[in-house]
Amino acid sequence: MRRTLLWLIPMLCLWLVPAFADDSSFPDTPGQDPVQSGEQIYMQICQGCHMPAGQGAVGAGHYPALGGDAALAAWKYPVLTVLGGRHGMPPFGLPATSLALQELRTVHLSDAQIANVVNYIRTSFGNHYPDMVSEAQVAALPHPGRR
């Protein structure tokens, strides 16, 4: 019985985290995004807020436009933003199996995926930054939820 209950503890965590305001009975798409190319990741995730042409949007607040954004000149800024999120934007660099990923109901992108999508953004929407970000460069930066 002791063994059974010890096994139960991680299960409890997985189960009990979603004290959410909805009751989707089946788990969300497990934390990992299978898509690889920067363009596809952008179209699947980023353009929901930053819009299809990277033009951003303005309402009570705003989503920054990505075309011509001077903050993209240094590659670390967009990489850190995708990894750790910024303000209301969810982080995408949490470990795939972390509790925090479930608590935030966000998505895990691998270092390679993050490099791909940042490279896509920095070479699209009128941006022409020639320096490509590598998976290793992403891996070397601090990740949320990593000790």
């Binding site: 995730i45 353009q47 929901g48 109901r105 966000t106 998505v107």
Partner: peptide, 13 residues
């Protein structure tokens, strides 16, 4: 539909 997570991001897009 009442969608969350990656699927919601896709639908938002």
């Amino acid at each position: 539909a009442y969608i969350w997570g990656l699927n919601a991001m896709e639908f938002t897009s």
